[in-house]
């Protein structure tokens, strides 16, 4: 027996996810934005959803966290998660063929995990062992893969087709899973989200001043920054030309 259901309005997030899947399976159905942002209208709704989520939950949590946590504690938390990410960076540096950097990364993780009390103190940086923020999206970039269209992911924020896939690999290969602590893992993930967001609180004010249209500002900054990261901070001159072609 068929039951007639009143058409409940999708909430913004669900609609965004559905749109996301649709857009990915039907490339070319929503080509309205500039070249690197053909899914602009979908992206804008996901952006609005993320922003609403940030307004009601994540930013308030991060603000509270920063207010009640002594500086050395929050720094230790940031460093702890940073050390886990450094482990991933070692593998990504290897995949990119940057062997000396990978060795530097191993030394860094070794020093920070021991003398640095399980990563809470960044002794490595003091010793001149530079922090490498590598991820799988960048690794694919180094292999010559273009970022592809810009994508805003629900919950995860600015990304691209390449980087969204990279993010999936980053999540699966996250050393946090090795701890196998059940509930603690989820607590740790929550903690990391809050810690990451707290690190961006100051950027909010800058963004508010700088951005005329926040969506396009974040998008164009994201694409530039990723290009720069793929080239380890030194993109070849004119490499960003395709991000905004001379008309």
């Amino acid at each position: 027996m068929t039951r007639l259901r009143a058409p409940t309005p999708f909430n913004a997030g669900l609609r965004a996810i559905v749109l996301c899947v649709l857009a990915l399976s039907l490339p070319g159905c929503a080509t309205t934005g500039p070249d690197h942002d053909p899914y602009e209208s979908m992206n804008r709704s996901v952006y609005a959803f993320n922003k609403a989520l940030d307004d009601v939950a994540i930013r308030p949590a991060a603000t509270l966290y920063e207010a009640i946590t002594p500086r050395f504690v929050s720094q230790a938390v940031t460093n702890f998660f940073g050390n886990l990410r450094d482990i991933q960076s070692v593998f990504y540096d290897l995949l990119q063929g940057k062997v000396p950097m990978a060795f530097g990364g191993v030394a860094r993780v070794a020093v920070n995990s021991t003398i640095g009390l399980a990563g809470m103190i960044d002794v490595g940086s003091e010793m001149g062992l530079e922090k490498r923020n590598e991820d799988f999206g960048q690794t694919m970039g180094v292999w010559g893969m273009d970022s592809g269209p810009y994508l805003v992911l629900p919950f995860l924020g600015p990304s691209s087709v390449r980087d969204a896939f990279g993010k999936g690999v980053d999540i699966v290969s996250d050393p946090l899973w090795l701890f196998g602590l059940g509930d603690w893992e989820y607590a740790a993930i929550g903690m990391r989200v809050v810690d990451d967001r707290a690190g961006l609180l100051r950027a909010d004010q800058i963004l508010g001043t700088a951005a005329i249209d926040e969506y396009t500002y974040v998008r164009d900054a994201y694409l530039q920054r990723r290009l720069s990261q793929v080239h380890d901070g030194d993109p070849p001159p004119g490499a960003d030309a395709e991000l905004s072609p001379e008309e």
């Binding site: 500039p34 500002y217 900054a221 920054r225 990261q229 993109p235 960003d240 905004s244």
Partner: peptide
């Protein structure tokens, strides 16, 4: 950090 203070406006302004 890889983001140009001025070029980030380029697409937005031109469009």
């Amino acid at each position: 950090d890889g983001v140009s203070l001025s070029l980030t406006y380029r697409n937005d302004f031109r469009s």
